[in-house]
Every structure is written in C-alpha cells, then in structure tokens.
Design a protein around this nucleic acid. Structure first.
Lengths: 214, 214
DNA sequence: GATTGCCAGATTGTCGGACAATTATTGTCC
DNA sequence: GGACAATAATTGTCCGACAATCTGGCAATC
C-alpha cells in the first residue's frame, strides 16, 4: 500500500522551488515573481506567497519590502560565516562521536556518499556529502542543533548549485570523511577535531574560489 | 528626526503576537484561531496567516495540518535540548571572549541586566538576562550563529513566560554573570567554560522544575 | 550636466469573499 | 456505553480587487 501524500499545496510549491534552487535552475540574485510563479505552478498567488515565506525563513531567498524576493546571494563573508558556524556545530558532534556515541548512522551516511560520489549525478553527490555532515551533528541527539545545521547546509547548497558540476577528486573527499570517522571511532577527540577543522577549511577555500573566481 | 515605521502589517501582527506569547497572555497549547485574530487585529485573514507562519518558523507556535496553530508546548526534553544547544553556542562565544574578543558589549549587556533586575518588570528582566547571553554568542561576530541562538532563547522565553513572575534571587543571578565576564576578561578559557556550564545547568534545573513542578 | 518632478507600467501588500476538504462536536440509535 | 450519522467550526486554497510602492524614462529646472 503506497503512502498517501498529505502535504499541502504550499509545501509542494516550496519543495519544487527548493529543488530548482539546489539544481541551479534559479541563479542567485534572480527575482521570483509571484504572479509568474502562480501561473506556472497553476496555484493561487497567496499559495506562492506562503511558499516563498517558508523559503525566506530558511534563508534560501531574500525578501526586499515592496520589491519581492530574489534568490539569496551569498557574499564571501556569508560563506565564511557558514563554515565557521558549521565548525562550531560539527565540532560538538565530533566530540560526542569520539566520546562514544553510536557511529553507525555516520558509517551508513559515508557508504551512501561513497556510492553517490561514484555516480554521475552531482546534485545527488552533494546531497549525500552534506548528509554525512548532518549525521555527524546528529550524534548529539539534539533535534534543534540538527535543524540549525540543516539551515546552514541548505544555504551552502545554494552557493554550490551554480558550480557543483565541476566536481573534482571525489575520491579524495570520500577518503577525508572516512578518516574523520576512523578518528572518532578511535576516541581521539583532539585528532578528530583537528581533522574536521582541516577538512572544513579546505572545503571553504574550494567553495570560495569557485563562487568568486579570483 | 523620528524614525519612520516601514514595517508591514504582517510584521506588526507577528510582533504583537510575540509579545502576547512572551508576556504569558497566551498559554502553551492554546489555539490561535485565524478569523478570531483577524477580527481583533482588524486585518485580513491572509495577513494573520502570514504572521502565524513567521511565528511557526521561529518555533513559537506549532501548526497541525487542518487543525490550526497552537502555542508551542515544550516538553522537558525540549528544554533539555534548548539548554544543550545554548551550551554549544555560548561555549563558542566564551572561547572567543577568553581569546581576546572585545568584551565591551557584554559588559554593557550586564549593566542593563543589573538595572532591569532591580526593576519590577519581570518580562523586561528576563529580556535583559537573555540579551546578556546573546551578547556572549555575538562575540563570535557571526550573524548566523546569533540567529540560531536567538531562536533558542525565544523558545525558552515561551517556557519562562508562564512562570517568570516568581523570579528569585536576581542578585545571585547577576553575580553569576559578572563572574563569567570576569573569567573571560582574565583569558582563562577553561575556567570561563566551566562557569558557563555550571550556570546553564542550574538555570536548566530551575526552569525545568518551575515548568513541570514535580 | 546633474538634479528634480512627474508620468506610466509593473509588482507587491492587503483586503474581502468564496467554497471544498478536513476536523471537531453533537445527537441518536442500538 | 459505543458506533454512527448529522452538524458546526476551521483550515486550505482560490479568485478578484485596489492602494501603495518601486522602476525607468522623459521633461523641466538649476
């Protein structure tokens, strides 16, 4: 018996827009016109407005009073803040992991990521990658912290969307993450934290240079 | 030259509701009926819906599909999660403070709090108290982390609203915070972190027992 | 040439009403 | 007392409307 979809129209519109944002179909700075969206989705304008407000709360789009919403543009500083915030949250997760939290979900996320990295769908690979990081934060068993982390990663996907086609050395990436997992398993918190910090620092550089090629 | 109010009706409705929530005028679990609110605020139902969605995103109210929104009820576990998350974020702030960040804003927040604690408006005292904690998180200079912390404190105010009239030993509270500031000034990160953890632990106990009297 | 004022078009913010779908309540029957 | 039908309350979604605001162009002014 297939599950029955109980989501609201607003939810589905928000989901559709989210996918368009993550896939790069909509570029940062691009305006999202209410009537136009309402027409193409065949829903009422009020429904579109509600969906846009959801995305606004998530930070994916930005609303300027009386001028509508546009796809959020991330400055270099924004990206720096996102990575710093991720370091704070994921460090807490890594500590929990090194301190004995059940690492099975992280291991599963790593396997999924490794498979996706071998595949040819960059959007999916990015998703699996970020899922790994989420699973690390989830080691704390704190849904609020996970929610905060999810917002951060969603914002990041926005920046990645425009450039993620040029994915490189996926194998190295996966190895990095496997190293982090191993260090957590060993219980060496300091080493695991150092590895996390190193990994995030290089990732940040990579994102920054790709987003704003110098 | 007085500032001109450029806020939208939705914003003002959301603000009014927020105040009613923080002041305890609306109790956890209480339903918020759209038509009823629209009538009393003299605005359209769609405007109320938008305001409620803002509050939903902030976690202050909870929407059940087809059953409307109610004031969020926090379980003991929710409170535990909030305090754990605060510890994660504020610890990062304390480290920055001990590492040399400019502590002037924290000192100012402490002064404001000390004055409010002497006053007789418990809502204001709570606000000033939480502002102090926010100022600690702000030491990181990361607006995204501050935003996350703000959501947490807002949720907490919800739990405090119903019981904050019975405020006690405000003097001791202020002294605690002063101690934290002093330790950050001294640069002793470990000691400052310990003090923060101790303070949050006792605060959590105090909140928990007041919310769900055993 | 830069600034200002004004106009037309596009878009948002807010309103009011409408109605089907869903949920809650009441009343009835066994 | 519990199942069940009838009823009421409420939400989700749609539509149409219109004032307020923003944008860009163009003329008038300094």
């Amino acid at each position: 018996m297939p599950a029955i979809d109980r989501s609201s129209t607003t939810d589905r519109v928000a989901r559709a827009l989210r996918e368009m944002l993550f896939s790069g179909e909509l570029s940062p700075g691009e305006p999202l016109r209410e009537v136009s969206l309402a027409d193409s989705f065949h829903v009422a304008r009020s429904t579109v407005r509600e969906a846009l407000q959801v995305l606004t709360a998530e930070g994916l789009v930005t609303r300027a009073p009386n001028r509508g919403v546009t796809v959020t543009e991330l400055s270099e500083q924004d990206i720096a803040e996102i990575f710093e915030a991720r370091l704070v949250l994921e460090s807490a997760g890594v500590r929990a992991g090194a301190a004995g939290a059940d690492l099975a979900p992280v291991a599963r996320a790593l396997t999924t990521y490794a498979e996706a990295a071998r595949g040819d769908d960059p959007v999916e690979a990015t998703h699996a990658h970020l899922e790994f990081h989420t699973s690390v934060v989830a080691l704390l068993g704190n849904s609020r912290i996970v929610a905060s982390a999810d917002v951060l990663t969603a914002d990041l996907r926005l920046a990645l969307a425009s450039v993620e086609r040029q994915r490189r050395n996926a194998r190295q990436q996966v190895a990095d993450h496997r190293a982090l997992l191993t260090l957590m398993r060993s219980g060496d918190a300091a080493a695991a934290l150092a590895e996390l910090e190193r990994h995030l620092a290089t990732a940040r550089l990579s994102v920054t240079e790709r987003v704003r090629p110098s």
